[in-house]
Design a protein around this nucleic acid. Structure first.
Length: 240
DNA sequence: TACCTAACCTATTCAATGA
DNA sequence: TCATTGAATAGGTTAGGTA
């Protein structure tokens, strides 16, 4: 059965004399709105009925109760979605207007918007996670490439060190003509080329957005200094 | 300043639904 | 039958109004 004004759920109390009759059909008669009294209304009514405070969750619901959860119709969902796209927050005027137009209780409109905002936020977090993961993967790959480059450079240095040592031993002086620098520079370029390391800023538009969102969501001021662990992780030579 | 109220958020429950 | 979805609830927080 659909939930709409054209097909309303008849309000048939389980027992009109029962002090608990207000618990039934509250999809039709919203206990949080009618009458006004806030979220303590159930307890207030229990007290008015001269009954002790009790755990309402323990009350035995009738198997024929009328508060079965009903899915909203596609028309109702479309209207609610359109309204949500216009404005994520719901002002009282819009809530009443939507309730009237869609044949729903204002409380249902408010609940739908609350759940919709929760789903929207979860989706945003999911996107942020994906963006950060991509960023991490890219940085991790670059770190591996740099480590390989460091190893290669160390090997070159070791090789040239051995040659120089042999030259000093043979001639008694060191050759500082700059030829070695040219060799090393060429070697570095070759290694970098083979590793396809660009040496540009890693931040991509998506990662920049992700970082911005991350800073916003985590209330992060963005002024952090690299930590000791970062230097260790990055394989950097020294920690300032 | 304490209290009240309304609106909101997060976590959870549970009926409806589809594979 | 079971996993997923989403409407609804519970309980907590916060902001604004008021005595």
């Amino acid at each position: 059965m659909e939930w709409s004004s054209s097909n309303p759920i008849p309000f048939i109390p389980r027992n009109a004399q029962s002090p608990f009759s207000f618990l039934y059909n509250y999809n039709t008669v919203d206990p949080y709105l009618y009458p006004p009294g806030g979220s303590d209304m159930k307890h207030q009514m229990l007290q008015q009925a001269s009954l002790p405070m009790m755990d309402l969750s323990q009350i035995d619901y009738d198997s024929n109760n009328q508060d079965k959860k009903k899915r909203l119709t596609s028309e109702q969902l479309e209207a609610l979605e359109n309204s949500f796209q216009e404005e994520i927050k719901l002002d009282p005027e819009r809530k009443m207007k939507l309730a009237q137009e869609l044949g729903l209780q204002p409380r249902q409109i408010a609940v739908w918007f609350q759940n919709r905002r929760a789903r929207w936020k979860a989706k945003q977090l999911e996107r942020l996670y994906d963006a950060l993961k991509q960023e991490f993967d890219a940085v991790f790959r670059e770190k591996q490439q740099l480590q390989e480059e460091v190893l290669a450079l160390r090997a070159i240095l070791k090789e040239h060190g051995s040659k120089r040592q042999a030259q000093v031993s043979a001639t008694g002086y060191s050759d500082m003509t700059g030829e070695d620098t040219t060799v090393e520079s060429t070697s570095v370029n070759a290694i970098r080329s083979s590793n396809n390391v660009s040496y540009q800023a890693v931040a991509t538009p998506s990662s920049a957005v992700a970082a911005g969102e991350c800073n916003y969501m985590l209330n992060y001021d963005g002024a952090a200094v690299p930590t000791q662990s970062y230097y260790n992780w990055a394989g950097l030579p020294s920690y300032p």
